[in-house]
Simulated scan of single mutants.
Amino acid sequence: MGSFTTIGGLVTDPLVSDRGWSRTGIGAAVAVNMVLYGAVAPFSAALMDRYGLRRTTSAALALLVACSLFTSFITPSVFWFVLWWGFAVGVGTGSVTMVFGAIVTNRWFRSKIGLATGLLTAASVVGQFATLPLLSVILGRTDWRGPILTGGALAAFALVVVLVGLADSPQSIGTLPYGDDSEPPRTPGTSSEPRADNPFRRTVDALVFCLRDGRFWVLALMFALCGATTNGLMWSHFTPAAHDHGMQVTVASSLLAIIGCANVLGTVAAGWLSDRVQPSLLLAVFFLGRGVSLAALPGLFAGDLHPNLVVFAVVFGMLDVATVPPTLSLCRRYYGRGSALAFGWVSVFHQLGAGTMALAGGVIRQIDGSYTWVWTLGASACVVAALLGASTSRA
């Protein structure tokens, strides 16, 4: 359901023009959405352990379908936009976030886990960016409601797919995880009984444990800066910034689609490398490269598409979500079987950073009249994240 995470930036200008809402108010809704996108993740992981992937994911998708309708037709003020798009959609998307991929890889793979993580992460990114050209065309032919309703329709389709085809675990269908050479269960479901403990208590206990671990704080701060320089910047502010330079929304969305396509190659490659190279080295290189690309962006913007912007889109796309597989590898190294919940709490900080940058970017744009300082701030944050990533080699 990656398309929901990019719609906020796409409809910002139309909402300002059509409803007269401030960028700060809209940015607040996007910020709440992003924070909940992360905050719900560890609880969702525990719910998936307790009630199953299929039930939890289906409930989240049904919520997204309902919220797309509420946002489109029951938004008399920016308060209601914050309620529906910020809170409710944030909960729905947060329930099927990166933790979903962590649980799937933990259950379904015993070898090539990094590569599997990269593939699943890349799939989510394709949904975030590849649908943008379609959504921008729909926006041009309708109004701000068009992309939101389209996101709801995609959620409805995904809900049908999940109900028909998603299994909770390999054991539930009588097979074994990839790379497991033991004897498969004779009766499907014999080794996939759900946990009986309280999922919320288990999630909070995992947080308490993580907060006492210095390694967790390094990962959390690094991932907060990661979220600020990806979700908080590109998903929320790239399209409005491009519009400030005279670029049409469809062209800006096409650039984001290029980022999404490059993400597939970059994230899969990062997953493959995570099985072979020290995660700390990968994180340092990825963050430094991202920082250089963000620092160069203000000088590349123009009214039309040109080769330098395409090069930026490819480079940034290669590095955009490439940090996820090595970070998840570190979580597995530090926390073993509890890595999904630990990664869920690390993801909370990712979205706190994203929400902070989404809100701060709107405020800076409204005060300064330009996004230049936003990109500079993002580049600086990447340098700090690279130093934190490199420090994990000593953990």
Rank of each mutant, 00 (worst) to 15 (best):
L300M: 15
V292R: 05
A296I: 13
L294A: 04
H306M: 03
V268M: 09
L282V: 10
I259W: 03
A270V: 01
L273M: 13
I259H: 00
D275Y: 07
L282M: 14
F301N: 05
A262I: 00
P298F: 11
L309M: 12
P279H: 12
F286L: 15
A269Q: 02
D304Q: 13
G289Y: 11
V264G: 06
D304A: 14
A262R: 09
G271P: 04
N263S: 13
V285M: 05
A269S: 11
L305A: 10
L305M: 14
F286D: 02
P307V: 11
S293A: 15
D304S: 15
G291H: 07
R290N: 08
V268P: 05
F287V: 07
R276V: 03
L294P: 03
V264T: 15
A296D: 12
A296P: 12
P307I: 09
L273Y: 07
G266C: 04
F301G: 03
G260N: 07
S274I: 09
T267D: 06
N263W: 00
A257Q: 01
P298L: 08
V264H: 14
V285C: 12
S293N: 06
P307K: 02
L300D: 11
A295P: 13
G291E: 08
P279F: 09
T267N: 08
A269E: 01
F287K: 12
G260L: 03
G291I: 12
A270H: 09
L281D: 11
G291S: 11
P279W: 11
L305P: 04
G271L: 05
L282D: 00
F301W: 09
A262Y: 08
R290L: 00
S274V: 06
S274T: 11
G260W: 04
F286M: 10
V268C: 01
V292F: 14
P307L: 06
I258W: 00
I258P: 01
L281H: 13
L256Q: 05
W272Y: 13
P298S: 07
G303C: 12
N263Q: 03
R290F: 00
V277D: 03
L297G: 07
